[in-house]
């Protein structure tokens, strides 16, 4: 069996919702059935085969080629298998992902990993704003799983994040970890303004000293034993964080305007 491959014929004029193309949704479908699936796109519902050339037959291993930033909701609610995407994608990548693995070789738009509850999202590129955050009207962002971004993330990464692990090897924009409820965010590069604004609980792990606002408080330098445990849990992840093994950090707590039980740990 070879990977079920969708090769985009031409870039669509409208945004296309690819929620229907997940391994579990396609598990028992024939190629003809898959070709006939209608994908929401503006006012239209184009069939899959009008947008994509389809090849292969293993629905548990889906490959999307020639992707563009108008393809939204890739891996929406996925519960098993693997999706590999080549090219840029639109918003809501790995939206409400439950289980399985999504690997993107390209850049993603806003709200990647929003509402994600499990599994792995690995982006070899940059992501837009609101990574692992709550969509408008939701009160919780990412609820579990692991996100690895090899490039940069935009603003509001981890907004209202509830649980899980986000590792960003590049830089992040402003308001990273804003209103964060719990979980862990690691950033190897730089962070923007208002880091941890309204942060309630959780951990932000930084390589570079951030610019902090007034309601984040310095708690001094510490050697924290739990970091050994955390880095051990990173060992098998495909990220530069897997090689980190330092547990001497400067600890900042906050946002004290919102309970103040969050922490920003900066490697010494």
């Amino acid at each position: 069996m070879s990977a079920l491959t969708f090769t985009l014929k031409t870039a669509p004029q409208q945004r296309v919702d690819l929620s229907a193309l997940t391994p579990d949704a396609l598990a028992d479908k024939s190629l003809a059935d898959i070709a006939a699936i209608e994908l929401p796109s503006g006012h239209d519902k184009p069939r899959v085969d009008t947008l994509f050339d389809i090849s292969g037959d293993d629905a548990s291993d889906i490959v999307i080629k020639n992707a563009t930033d108008r393809l939204d909701y890739i891996g929406h609610g996925m519960r098993s298998g693997r999706i590999t995407v080549h090219g840029n994608v639109g918003s809501y990548l790995a939206f409400k992902l439950r289980k399985g693995e999504i690997v993107l070789h390209g850049n993603a738009g806003d709200f990647a990993a929003s509402g994600m509850a499990g599994g792995l999202l690995h982006v070899h590129g940059n992501v837009g704003d609101f990574l692992a955050s709550a969509i408008i009207g939701e009160r919780r962002g990412m609820k579990g799983g692991t996100v690895i971004i090899t490039g940069n993330a935009g603003e509001r990464a981890g907004d209202q994040m509830r649980r899980g692990l986000v590792l960003i090897e590049g830089n992040v924009g402003s308001y990273c970890a804003s209103r964060m409820i719990a979980g862990t965010i690691g950033v190897m590069g730089t962070t923007g303004e208002y880091l941890a604004y309204g942060m309630r609980r959780g951990t932000v792990l930084l390589n570079n000293a951030p610019k902090l606002h007034a309601t984040i408080q310095d708690c001094g330098s510490h050697t924290l034993p739990f970091l050994s445990l955390m880095f051990k849990s990173f060992r098998d992840l495909p990220t530069k964080f897997a090689a980190v093994n330092r547990n001497r950090v400067q600890r900042y707590a906050g946002d004290i305007a919102n309970d103040g039980k969050g922490e920003i740990l900066v490697f010494k």
Binding site: F226, L229, M230, S233, K261
Partner: peptide, 25 residues
């Protein structure tokens, strides 16, 4: 006393309790 925090690694929950020598895990 409310300053405790938890972390989940590999599906297991760990507690970090602030104590005078640092943290009890």
């Amino acid at each position: 006393d409310g300053f405790q925090t938890s972390k989940v690694f590999g599906g297991k929950r760990y507690w970090r309790v602030p104590v005078m020598d640092g943290e009890f895990m």
